[in-house]
Amino acid sequence: MKRFALLAVLLFGALLVYGTTDFPDWGDPSSPAATHVSPHYIRHSLEETAVPNIVTAVLADYRGYDTMFETSVIFTAGLACFFLLRVFARKAPDSRLYRHRATGITLRIEQGGRLPEGAREFERIDSQWVPYDLIIRTACRLVLPFIQLFALYVVAHGHHSPGGGFQGGVIFGAAVILYAISHDLRSTLQMLPERRTVLMSAGGVLIYAGTGLICLLLGAQFLDYAALAGILGVDPIMARSHGIFIVEIGVAIAVMAVMVSLYYNLASVGRFDEGL
């Protein structure tokens, strides 16, 4: 059976490789894509949308419908992971571990017991305890603001340089995940609660689809940002550029929230008490 499977994989692999010989050469100027679609984008995208980065113009404007559903796919993936992993039964853990900040002595408190009032020098730690590392914590805390700033730059500068809502959102989500890894899940959840991540992921998709709906209500086609010119107070070409920026922000919020929500669910197996 295994030999048969290997044979089938090799056969289909060989067929696929053979199939690629019919493809146009890389960068071939006479290939169908380079003769019909690309020249229009290369010649007219700047004057039609006022966006220097052609990739951004194509993704968010000419092919805006595709990108909207890509965002919905990510949102659905986050939702599926939530429904698969999230455990709603609130069961108190058998015991909790507390560490004395100054000396590192660990206390195990069985179910029912609790720390004495005002014992502020103890902090709760995960049961699969990762050694407290001052260098990692401090280094991560030092670079986090810069990662977040870079993520915002990637979102805001997508019109001129590579990047955009998707990449910026992922980097911002990665910054939150880095905080959760270097510190712990509980402090991250205090900063960015689960409810907020779910609302943000839905809100990001809503921003995208809502922009399209406003265009529809203003009498233009779905996601035809030129219709927003009246609301934004600019000419139709600038309105397309601003419309792209609005939907990129929606994508960034949705992707960031989905990444963080995925990490919360995966790292705590849906219990939201202890992370990595």
């Binding site: 955009g164 990449q167 980097i171 989500g173 990665a174 990490y263």
Partner: peptide, 14 residues
């Protein structure tokens, strides 16, 4: 470059 950026952040990172 845009695809490379996505691959680096999603594939190699998150």
């Amino acid at each position: 470059v845009d695809v490379a950026f996505t691959e680096a952040s999603v594939g190699a990172g998150v």
